[in-house]
Amino acid sequence: MPELKSGTLLGFDFGLKRVGVAVGTWELGLAHPLETISSEINTARFARIAELISQWRPVALIVGMPQYDDGAQHEFAPTCLRFANRLHGRFGLPVFWVDERYSSVAASSVLNEQGVRGRKQKPMLDQVAAQQILQQYFDESDSAHELT
């Protein structure tokens, strides 16, 4: 795995209806929710991701990979892996994946603590889940996996 200890990173929580995006820098080691791409159309999704990459100029992209509680691969994992491979192929940036177990639960908990509950969470949940994924990468980068 290449040593990436400086620069901006974008994190993604991939879903069939929405893609949460977060941003952070190695220098601070903190992830922040950025936006939720609410489109099921791949061309629209990747057009927006291209804009974000142009704007933020990340050194790498981080994708959450779903797993079951016992660590077994979730049936949605191949779809997430396909998304990660497309990111790498389209943008030529290193792409890493981390175990995203509990990222949505943690995101919901964070939003509850901030007084955002129920249906009000929907527009923010995916980007806060992406924040959890990217923060996990910062905190545990040694356990991240690079696409090969």
Score class of each variant (00 low, 15 high):
Lys17Thr: 14
Glu51Leu: 10
Glu35Gly: 06
Gly15Trp: 05
Pro33Glu: 10
Leu81Glu: 12
Phe76Trp: 07
Glu100Gly: 04
Pro58Trp: 00
Ile37Phe: 03
Glu113Asn: 12
Gly11Lys: 02
Leu9Cys: 12
Gly24Ala: 09
Trp56Asn: 10
Trp26Cys: 14
Asn42Ala: 15
Pro94Ser: 03
Pro94Gln: 01
Gln127Gly: 00
Ser143Met: 05
Leu87Arg: 00
Gln67Met: 10
Gln121Val: 05
Leu125Trp: 06
Gln67Tyr: 04
Leu61Thr: 03
Leu147Met: 11
Glu146Lys: 13
Tyr137Cys: 10
Ala129Arg: 09
Leu125Glu: 04
Gly89Asp: 13
Leu147Glu: 03
Arg18Met: 08
Ala130Gln: 05
Ile62Trp: 02
Phe138Lys: 10
Asp69Pro: 00
Thr148Gly: 12
Ala44Asn: 11
Val21Cys: 09
Val116Ser: 03
Asp142Phe: 06
Glu40Leu: 08
Thr8His: 04
Asp139Ile: 03
Gln55His: 14
Asp99Val: 01
Gln73Val: 12
Ser103Thr: 15
Leu87Glu: 05
Gly29Met: 07
Gln121Arg: 15
Glu35Trp: 00
Ile49Leu: 15
Ser39Gln: 07
Gly29Tyr: 08
Gln55Pro: 04
Pro66Cys: 03
Asp70Trp: 04
Ala44Thr: 12
Glu51His: 09
Val63Tyr: 01
Gln55Tyr: 11
Glu140Asp: 14
Glu27Pro: 08
Val23Arg: 15
Leu16Gln: 13
Lys5Cys: 11
Asp139Ser: 15
Gly118Pro: 08
Gly7Ser: 01
Asn85Thr: 08
Ser141Cys: 10
Arg57Tyr: 08
Arg86Asn: 13
Val23Cys: 09
Leu111Met: 15
Leu61Arg: 06
Gly7Trp: 06
Ser38Val: 14
His145Glu: 12
Val19Lys: 03
Val19Asn: 07
Val63Leu: 04
Leu61Cys: 09
Ala130Ile: 04
Ser54Trp: 09
Leu10Ile: 09
Met124Lys: 14
Pro33Arg: 12
Tyr102Asp: 05
His88Gly: 09
His145Gln: 15
Gln132Ile: 06
Gln73Tyr: 04
Asp70Ile: 00
Ala129Pro: 05
Val105Lys: 11
Gly115Leu: 09
Arg18Phe: 05
Pro94Phe: 02
Gln55Glu: 15
Val95Thr: 01
Phe138Glu: 05
Asp99Tyr: 03
Gly7Asn: 07
Ile133Tyr: 02
Val110Thr: 15
Arg57Val: 11
Val59Glu: 11
Gly29Asn: 08
Phe138His: 04
Lys17Ile: 12
Thr43Asn: 14
Ser141Trp: 08
